[in-house]
Amino acid sequence: MQVLMNTVSPKYNTYNNFNNTNKQQYNQQPSFGANTDEVVIKVVKKSNFLKKTITAIKSVPKKLTQASAWLVPKLFDNKFMDKLSVKLQNSDNLFKHFLAIGSAITSGMYMYKTLQNDKLDKDRKNTLAVNQFLTFVLSTAGAYAIDGSINDWWQKMTAKYAAASLEDKTLLDDFVKEFKEAKEENKKIKAFNKTASAADKKDLKSVRADAFIKDRLGKYLVDAKDRSLFMDRIKGMSFLKSMLVFALVYRYIVPVAVTKPANILCEKYLAHKKNEEKDDD
């Protein structure tokens, strides 16, 4: 007689069942002799057109990403990019330059369209194009100025965000204190550098919130992955500032406050020019 004693706990059985279900799902062979209807249903289900289409659509973003990743080195692995990245290594405004150039391209396109417009007479076309150009130049200069002027306040906001996320108010207090000291010290260094020789010149102290937070992050987050993720968000703060400022200028201040007065000026100039021409005659 053979007795099988099962001393396995129900918990283990649940785990085992889970495994068996999975195994069945992948290893079970269709038994053609047993129940053909079941097999037919399975085949129909497997060749479901909608299912396949959805799967194909779902895989599109992944395929596009893979294609882009393949193309990236092909386009940028060259000497030009190599030299450019060295040249721009000290630039903190690279993203702003990209925004400004992007806007220049869009403004240029609108200027070109104005100049090509057959419905407008020549004087009006030129004046409108000049108007568009000046609006672009002034608004871009304004955007850079606003971005620079709120920089100190934004650094504090960044520290405030970090302090709130890491739930440590002292982080913000420390930053404000250190920021103030560094600013004062930088004034002295600048004054000293004016008179000092090139070799004696001192480096300015960092007043950036991201560097401050990065130095202290180890105290709060042990895992490197967490630290990297958190620093991504801190870097995101500086992107957010420039994006908000440039969008505010290009998409709000210019259309609401600048375009109308500029158009009125343009009309006045055209009327004045017409009168002058008549007087000349």
């Binding site: 993203f95 968000r233 992107f239 908000l244």
Partner: peptide
């Protein structure tokens, strides 16, 4: 913040 850091162009468009 993660979105604007990872997707600069879309982030700008989101602000717009």
């Amino acid at each position: 913040l993660k979105f604007v850091k990872d997707h600069n162009v879309s982030g700008s468009a989101l602000m717009a």
